[in-house]
């Protein structure tokens, strides 16, 4: 009886993961996509525990779940940091190119 219940819970969880994938695929902004990935990861951690009960080998699956939770957290932090870093690089590049254009303008306009 309990096994059927756990199986049903796992299937529902899987459907919820599919629903939140819609946000990952269709999210209008980058933040929505990262958030969707984070949510899917949290659900997967729990799903791994339920699978562990179904295989009646919880001791092994708990280790996998811990590793997955850690990876999920670090992946989210890494993704956010990456986009912060990219923004800063963009700003720096913009400044550099503006300076170059200014320099070209002055050399063109200089002699005349």
């Amino acid at each position: 009886m309990m096994d059927t219940f756990i199986l049903a819970a796992a299937v529902i969880l899987l459907l919820l993961i599919l629903a939140s994938l819609a946000r990952v695929v269709g999210g209008p902004t980058i933040g929505d996509r990262i958030l969707g990935g984070n949510v899917v990861g949290t659900k997967t951690t729990v799903l791994l525990l339920l699978i562990g009960i179904l295989y009646s080998d919880l001791g092994m699956f708990v280790d996998i779940a811990i590793a997955y939770a850690l990876l999920n957290f670090i992946a989210t932090l890494g993704a956010t940091k990456f986009f912060l870093r990219r923004r800063n690089t963009d700003e720096v590049l913009d400044e550099i190119f503006h300076q170059q254009e200014d320099a070209v303008d002055t050399t063109k306009g200089g002699p005349s």
Partner: peptide
């Protein structure tokens, strides 16, 4: 006990991830 450790970890990690996401969104 190990399973409860996951729960504790999620409670520390989830607000931190939310915070990081908010800041990134504001900067972007």
């Amino acid at each position: 006990l190990k399973i409860l450790l996951i729960a504790v970890f999620i409670y520390v990690a989830s607000p931190t991830a939310t915070h990081a996401l908010t800041r990134t969104a504001l900067v972007l």
